[in-house]
């Protein structure tokens, strides 16, 4: 595997975020380089999910800036960040329960579809052609994730592990440049975890997608990530390649614990 990690594609500078009196993030700076897999780890309540929410515009930090592909911004609507090539999955599955697997994945193509409502009401000519083009993209995602057999099943009926996979599919359908994964392996058994790791590595490998992920399984984190950032109480306490982080005394104290 020869992958070349490129320049910094996403830079977060001195991000501070608080809710009322609670300070969720204080003065955090993180760089993400093109094509890398960056893991964010830390104890519960350290601000990991808040960090992802700042990156894709769900939360707006009080201080600091986010620079994505050379453009600096502080407040951005989530749908604007989606249009600029950021996709994500959620810690608690946030699929559209009433819709089929295919429809869920098709929603990932929303920002790429151009025909207006009148064309869609006619469902003819260009509108139909567009629908089929995007269907092909989604079918490739479905092939990739090996979920062909549940294409038409409402996602509410699927087991947990498959739902997680569909959610990844929905994010992939947008063909993002940056993929944010919030605990993609939480609550999975070993086999499902292995599958998910494989998919994450393949996405990174085949499409060159930059990935930022939050994960609690240290075996997984140290195995698949190129770099690890550690948060604790809203501060960043370490940032480096897995081996550096593993031996960092402050990280051991705050999160990893001493070896038994």
């Amino acid at each position: 595997m020869t992958k070349t990690i490129g320049d910094v594609i996403l830079r977060c500078d001195n991000i501070s975020l608080s809710f009322g009196g609670v300070r969720a993030l204080s003065d955090i700076s993180i760089d993400v380089r093109e094509h890398e897999i960056l893991a964010i780890i830390g104890p519960n309540g350290a601000g990991k999910s808040s960090m992802l929410n700042v990156i894709n515009g769900v939360y707006h930090p009080q201080e600091g800036t986010v620079t994505w592909k050379g453009q600096t911004r502080r407040a951005m609507k989530p749908h604007e960040s989606a249009e600029s090539g950021i996709a994500r999955t959620f810690q608690n599955i946030a699929l559209f329960k009433g819709m089929s697997t295919l429809d869920n994945i098709m929603t990932g193509r929303y920002t790429k579809m151009r025909r207006n409502l009148l064309w869609q009401a006619l469902y003819w000519g260009p509108a139909r052609k567009e629908e089929i083009e995007h269907r092909e993209v989604c079918e490739r995602v479905i092939d990739f994730l090996q979920i062909e057999s549940i294409r038409k099943t409402p996602v509410g009926r699927l087991p947990y592990g498959l739902q997680k996979r569909v959610e990844l599919g929905r994010a992939l359908a947008a063909q993002p440049e940056l993929l944010l994964l919030d605990e993609p392996m939480a609550g999975m058994n070993v086999e499902e975890k292995e599958d998910m790791c494989r998919f994450i590595l393949d996405v990174n490998d085949e499409f060159g997608t930059t990935i930022v992920l939050i994960e609690h399984d240290m075996g997984v984190v140290m195995d698949i990530s190129d770099r690890v950032a550690v948060l604790d109480y809203g501060r960043k306490i370490a940032d480096g390649v897995p081996d550096q982080v593993r031996t960092n005394p402050e990280v051991i104290r705050a999160y990893l614990g001493a070896g038994h």
């Binding site: 894709n56 769900v58 609507k77 989530p78 749908h79 989606a82 249009e83 996709a87 994500r88 959620f90 946030a94 699929l95 559209f96 329960k97 009433g98 819709m99 929603t107 990932g108 929303y110 920002t111 929905r170 947008a174």
Partner: peptide
């Protein structure tokens, strides 16, 4: 079904 993730997808 889920307005927050709809918005994050770009809707």
């Amino acid at each position: 079904d889920k307005d927050i993730s709809a918005e994050v997808i770009g809707i």
